[in-house]
Design a protein around this nucleic acid. Structure first.
Lengths: 348, 348
DNA sequence: TTGAAAGCGCTAACAG
DNA sequence: CTGTTAGCGCTTTCAA
């Protein structure tokens, strides 16, 4: 293979003129005579000339590439955020290289290195659920390589970020359960060291408090953010002497797994157990019953993250804006009890 | 910003030696004395030296980047295929840039151009459902830019590809329905010009034939590959005088939408209508009842596609291997009728 | 065993 | 208006 594409030199030689003239003509520099300009541009079109970004990059010291690291690729949540980023990136003539950490710290570190090797100008990342050490990010900061976090952030680092108000959202979910007659509200949380876990748990506790319920320790379980662990967590909840009448999953993956397990126990949703998820995946409306969930402004999150990234490039290290976006509870069937009276008798 | 990273020159100057010596030492060239080599490598480590891929690319005329275009990003099917590609690419030191066509021909063309501009060495693509003109691919072929298709291919072009045996799979689905007592087997197909539509439809017809059923034209509907159209198609099927006792969706997205619509009509699945999808999305087991589907060897498809790509790079234009992989029918609840006898009475 | 120089494709400052 | 030249970072002859 190795078919060289047309270069400025090729065009210049073919026309018997200098490279710089060709270069100028192609950018419509007024110093070049109109006739020559046209002649050059025509030849360029015929020869299918595409400027070599490597040469440009070398010269200008920029690759026009942003590295994005997400915990996984198959979740609508991330895909949608990435779309938002691409939108903004494209406007600025930037490309995005996506890497997935698969929720693994090792793979995350590796991705950072790989992306750096391929000379992205900076990174936009949502940390993996395992991430509890941060040297790989500290190196970036030390070298003044632009870094932006979204959704899951490293709170101890002074880095711009886009997140949602998880505490507020979780509080509202808890209240929503309460208003639907639930009194034994369980919460399946994620790893404690993640900001999203911490915030949502805080909101859950606050919600209980505001509703005058006290925390039943058995109803607060922690698990890793995968379906298997969520299944186990749910099983644990369903094996309690007094089972919960509501379960709140820290995200939709957890909620889907919980739903499966609840069905396996032949417990009707929402009447015996109401269920709510978080992030509002596409499949929320496919499952039966449709899952109530907390929607995230994903496109906007992506756009804002990209915007912060470019600000970061312009303003340099001092920049560390932290953006917090609101969410909205979308009520579907999984959380609205038809038989509120029956449920009310279960009040503890 | 614009913090230049350490270059060979920086290292050379710091040690008061020549650039070429540094370059050689860093690749353990035996011509450099061991002491010097060690000294240089140590400094490189301290200074966090990373070779500049732009410079290398310019020199060697290769970017080590592969462009991948998929119809969408949020489907497990594509994500998983991409994982397979990345695996193989990584072994060869290549990176993947992903672009999504969003099932639009316009966006697909745009993606081809953008990826070319960013100088990927070639493309691996699954065409959009709208794609019915191919100039944007013909240009690639003319310029001898490596191109590989997967899943949905342009059959008129001599290009290496990885697909599955859709005809065989669809035939098996039809037989499976038959063996479960279904006699009015409907098929929701995709756009006629797509190879996957054509193959699967062919398999469906062959299956009917082998089972001694004749095609009921009303039961064969065509739609675009999105949930809305699938809903309409299903509605049409359910409004027939004699409704089908089985529906086969050309993919899982279609099947999910059909499932929703069937439920809306309060028709029990699978007893009144059996349902089978294609591609076996992750959520097949989340829906109720769990969806019978045709699994694809997605990881393998990705790996093979990448492998073909590299062969393409090595062997040049003449290479056009067409790989066809087998699938497997995974039977779940949505297609196994418990009340076969009752259903048998419905035989047309 | 090491250094000097050319060249990959391009832009921009400097000459003409 | 057009050409010449230097240089971005790197590898690779060719020279020493």
């Amino acid at each position: 293979m190795k078919k060289r594409l047309t270069s400025l030199k090729d065009l210049a030689e073919e026309l018997g003129i200098s490279i710089s003239t060709v270069s100028r003509a192609l950018k419509n520099n007024p110093m070049i005579s109109p006739e020559l300009t046209i002649k050059i541009q025509e030849l360029a079109a015929i020869k299918n000339y595409i400027p070599n970004p490597l040469a440009m990059g070398l010269l200008k010291q920029q690759t026009k590439m942003i590295g994005v690291i997400v915990p996984d690729l198959v979740t609508h949540f991330y895909s949608s955020i990435i779309s938002g980023m691409e939108e903004v990136a494209k406007e600025k003539g930037y490309y995005i290289i996506i890497a997935s950490s698969n929720e693994s710290l090792e793979k995350e570190k590796e991705s950072v290195n790989n992306l750096l090797k391929s000379r992205v100008e900076g990174l936009i990342v949502c940390i993996s659920q395992q991430t509890n050490s941060f040297e790989h990010f500290e190196i970036l900061i030390k070298n003044e390589i632009p870094l932006v976090f979204f959704d899951r952030v490293v709170e101890s680092l002074e880095v711009p970020s886009v997140t949602v108000d998880g505490a507020e959202a979780a509080k509202n979910v808890t209240r929503h359960f309460y208003e639907n007659g639930c009194r034994r509200i369980a919460y399946i949380s994620g790893p404690e060291h993640l900001n999203i876990s911490k915030n949502r748990k805080e909101g859950y506790l606050k919600g209980l408090q505001e509703c005058g319920l006290k925390l039943i320790p058995d109803l607060l379980v922690e698990c890793n953010l995968n379906a298997e662990e969520a299944t186990l967590a749910t099983r644990k909840l369903l094996s309690l002497n007094q089972i919960p009448d509501a379960i709140f999953g820290i995200n939709d993956t957890i909620a889907f797994a919980a739903m499966k397990e609840i069905k396996k126990h032949k417990l009707p949703i929402p009447d015996d157990i109401a269920l709510v998820g978080f992030t509002d995946e596409f499949h929320s409306t496919v499952v039966e019953p449709a899952l109530t969930s907390v929607t995230h402004p994903t496109l906007q999150m992506g756009r804002e993250a990209a915007r912060l990234f470019f600000e970061c490039i312009e303003k340099g290290k001092s920049f560390a804006e932290k953006l917090i976006l609101p969410t909205k509870l979308v009520v579907r069937e999984s959380s609205v009890k038809r038989l509120q009276k029956k449920t009310m008798q279960n009040v503890q």
